[in-house]
Each structure stands twice: as C-alpha cells, then as structure tokens.
C-alpha cells in the first residue's frame, strides 16, 4: 500500500493538515502512527481507510477488505449490541452468525442485549473492534484502539494485530498512550507540522544484507510464531498456504 504525495485539508481555504506524505507499507507490517493531539494522525488513518479523499496525491494498492475502528465508536444508534453486529454482518454480505465468535472473544456476551447508547466507552470500543473484524481485513486501521479498554482487553489488541499481519494484512494504529510496546516489530511514523516522519531505525525496506528464510510452522502455531519472530526483530513478509513441497536448497 503506497501513499504518493498526499496533501489534505478540510476546507478549500483552510491550512493543509497533511503535506506531501510519501510512504509505503508492505504486506504483513504494522505501522504505529504517533503525534500530539491535532497533529493529523486520525486524518492520515481516515485517508488510508478511504473515508477521506486527498486534495492532491493518491493512495495505491489499498487492500479490498478494510476494517476501520474509528476513534469514537458511533454509539448513538437505536440498536442493541447483537442487533448492530448482526446488521453489520448482513451489510458485509456475511451470515448473521459471523459476529458470534467476536462477541465471545471480546467478552461482549453479557452486553448482547444492551442498547449501544448504554454501553461503557470501553465496551463500545469493543463493538467497534468487532465490526471491523467481521470479515478478515487486508487493511486494519485502529484509531486509538486502547482508549477505554480494561487491562484484560488491552492484551487482545496485539493478538489481533498479529493475526491480521500474520495473514499478510497491513495494520495501521494510532497511539498517544504509549501502548505501542505491545506491538513488537511495528514501524513508527510520526506526524508533525503536517508532515510524516518515518523512524529511521524502522526502514521497511530492510538492510541490503537481508536474506529471506522460508519457515514452515504448524497452522495452530502460526500466530505465535509470527509474534515471536517480530519480537526477535525479524521482519515477517507474509504468511501463505503451503501449496507445494518446498525443495531443499
């Protein structure tokens, strides 16, 4: 996914919020977007998602299935948790039961019949997370995903991120709470004065001396292996089915 010369402003005569953003994200990578309040993190994420359109420039190779967890989940809707998630499943063309695994995993079981407007901030955030994951996303954009989550739920975010990147997806996360330590191997981007600064130590292109090592792991251990490799500082380029026997080299 490539950001090519992205400029954006909210009104024709307003100042540019983002200027000349150039960046590339490889499949299987996590990008943490940092910056102070109002710097343009959410704007960049919404451009990545496609709900905002750049004034200049273009975003190429955006994955087809996009999951977006907005900074504030729109809880002012006359649905219960289960009604909402089932409706969103249907909107995505999925069976209504598609939401059930996420309801269980995110601990939403006791809130299924609670109106969205009555949910706590953290629980509403989980509903936002669930709707973004109904279909396995090729691009997952999380705008301050830890906001309002309790300690137990916070650990879920890195797990989910690892699963998406492990399947070859791209994850963009904004964070101003210092939770990024839970995302080993993530690239850091900082939005400052309308410009995007990439962390020099996290060059996604890798070093010139890099080699690619293909490793086969048991399917049930794939997620854990990806997390371990990233924690060790390696770049996981992707995860694929083992269609053909690998020849000895």
């Amino acid at each position: 996914m490539r950001f090519e010369g992205i400029w954006f402003r909210y009104a024709r005569r307003a100042d540019w919020t983002l200027r000349g953003v150039e960046a590339t994200v490889e499949p299987g990578r996590t990008v943490v977007v940092l910056g102070h309040n109002g710097a343009g993190k959410s704007t960049l994420l919404q451009l990545a998602v496609g709900v905002l359109h750049p004034g200049r420039g273009v975003i190429r190779d955006r994955p087809r299935v996009v999951g977006w967890v907005p900074e504030r989940f729109p809880a002012a809707q006359p649905f219960t948790t289960v009604d909402y998630l089932r409706s969103m499943s249907a909107v995505r063309g999925l069976p209504v039961t598609a939401a059930d695994p996420w309801i269980e995993r995110l601990g939403l079981g006791e809130h299924v019949d609670t109106p969205l407007a009555d949910l706590s901030k953290g629980t509403a955030q989980k509903v936002g997370l669930a709707q973004a994951l109904l279909a396995p996303p090729g691009l997952l954009v999380l705008d301050e995903p830890w906001e309002g989550l309790d300690a137990a739920s916070r650990t879920l975010v890195p797990q989910i991120v690892a699963e998406v990147t492990g399947a070859g997806g791209v994850v963009l996360v904004s964070d101003h709470r210092g939770e990024v330590a839970g995302l080993p191997g993530a690239i850091h981007w900082t939005v400052r004065d309308g410009e995007l600064h990439r962390d020099a130590t996290d060059d996604p292109g890798g070093g010139e001396d890099d080699v690619v090592v293909e490793v086969a792991v048991a399917r049930r251990e794939a997620d854990e292996a990806v997390v371990r490799l990233r924690a060790s500082g390696h770049r996981v380029l992707g995860v694929r089915e083992k269609h053909t026997p690998v020849e000895d080299r």
């Binding site: 919404q46 998602v49 496609g50 709900v51 996009v66 977006w68 907005p70 504030r72 989940f73 729109p74 002012a76 809707q77 969103m88 909107v91 995505r92 709707q131």
Partner: peptide, 14 residues
C-alpha cells in the same frame, strides 16, 4: 438519522 461515523463505516463496507 445515522451518525456521520456510522455512515462512513457503511460507505467503507459497501
């Protein structure tokens, strides 16, 4: 009726 963010989620989906 629909909140703006929900409309964007729907737009993203369909």
């Amino acid at each position: 009726t629909e909140p703006d963010v929900q409309r964007r989620l729907a737009r993203l989906t369909v």
